[in-house]
Design a protein around this nucleic acid. Structure first.
Lengths: 113, 113
DNA sequence: GCATTATTAAACTCATTAGTTAATTAACCT
DNA sequence: AGGTTAATTAACTAATGAGTTTAATAATGC
């Protein structure tokens, strides 16, 4: 499927790609730097980056012959938002947390609507 | 891949399966009930349920000839946990939230370690 | 026992995915 | 211009995924 959420989850459904995102959370990196820890060819890593880019999870700039990759968390936020709907099923303190978030956002206690 | 997190994200990377989970969040349902809203054959839905079950996102019991499906949120909690590591990148109030969670858990303000 | 209902299994098709190696593009440097 | 480094494209293979239709299993109710 090609809807954004499906593309995001599909991109995250691979340990190599999750490891790439973890690496990028520590700072931008070139393709070679990203590929170094993995026991696979450079084109294979390049393809993974393409998947991540298509999902909007990374962006790439150009500096000379290097193409540094940069983490983008918008899709992660969306994925988190989808999962959050189920949070009440496992997180007992969710309701209190939810109130707290509203307080942070509005500056006032929730009216318990 | 067959690691739990990959199976969870792969299961979530399909709109039909996400819709099934949404349906089950309102209560247990049989295969026919689950399949009703979808424009696809029953075996197709049955396969989706198999994927969800393999990922641990649902369990099934047996009552006569019905196999009611039940939502299990353990894997969602794990997926949420993975994404949470990136939360600081988009959620400005994350640090304060984090402190708040610690307070809920320990009953005391964080020592700012 | 037999028909009915609920669900799964088998066998198949078509598209996509993850990986490979070899070749190509792009930019740098002397 | 020619050589080197960085990265992608092309062409291919093998495995997986999502869907189909037809057939089989399992339990119920006469």
């Amino acid at each position: 499927m090609s809807d954004p959420l499906s593309m995001t989850f599909a991109a995250l459904a691979d340990p190599t790609r999750r490891a790439i995102l973890a690496r990028l959370s520590e700072g931008d990196a070139t393709v070679n730097e990203i590929a170094a820890p993995f026991a696979m060819s450079l084109p294979a890593v390049s393809k993974h980056l393409k998947v991540l880019e298509a999902a909007g999870l990374i962006t790439r700039s150009r500096t000379a012959q290097w193409r540094p990759c940069h983490l983008e968390t918008g899709p992660l936020k969306e994925a988190n938002g989808w999962i959050a709907h189920y949070r009440r099923f496992w997180d007992q303190s969710f309701d209190r947390l939810d109130d707290y978030v509203r307080q942070l956002q509005t500056g006032e206690p929730d009216k318990k609507s």
